[in-house]
Simulated assay, not measured.
Amino acid sequence: MAGTKPMNSYFVPGYGISRTVIQNEIRYHCGPDAIVRPYTHQGRDGFLVTTSGPPLTKEQIADLRESSRDFEEKQAATSGFVNQPVQVGNRGRRSVS
């Protein structure tokens, strides 16, 4: 197609970045055609970003981490199960004969 920019893919380490947050914000940072998916590169979990726009800057990655921390804190506050035991059932031990 005439005028179509080439797509570039690159790895973003996932440490501290919520999948929900990066998927919701990637188009804001990298353009309307940007997509992101979970990816493992050299044993490290993260995300594969594909876009014809500019790559994420260090500052944008820091913003994603901060947004992710806020998102996770809100999720934890609404779930009510942060660092609390969760009853999963009372199954007695079976003896093996």
Rank of each mutant, 00 (worst) to 15 (best):
R44M: 10
Y15F: 11
N8C: 02
S95E: 06
Y10W: 08
H41A: 04
V21A: 13
V86S: 09
C30W: 00
T4I: 10
M1I: 12
T4N: 06
S97Q: 15
V21E: 13
H29L: 14
N24P: 00
P32V: 04
T51W: 02
V86N: 08
V49D: 03
Q60G: 07
R37P: 06
R44L: 10
G16M: 11
I22L: 03
L56V: 06
R27C: 07
I35A: 13
G14E: 01
T50S: 08
A34P: 02
L48C: 08
V86Y: 11
K74F: 05
P38G: 14
T78Q: 14
S68H: 09
A2L: 10
P38H: 07
A2Q: 10
P54E: 09
G14K: 01
S97F: 14
P6S: 07
I17R: 00
S67H: 06
T78W: 10
M7Y: 12
P85N: 03
P13R: 05
R44T: 11
E25G: 03
Q23N: 15
P55H: 12
D63I: 05
F71C: 04
P32K: 10
P55V: 08
G3S: 12
A62W: 00
N8R: 15
I22G: 02
G16E: 14
Q75D: 03
G16Q: 11
Y10V: 08
I35S: 15
F71S: 05
K58H: 14
Q42K: 14
G89S: 09
S52Q: 06
K58N: 15
M1S: 14
Q87W: 10
P6C: 05
A62N: 04
S68F: 09
R37Y: 11
E73K: 13
M1Y: 11
G14P: 02
Q84H: 05
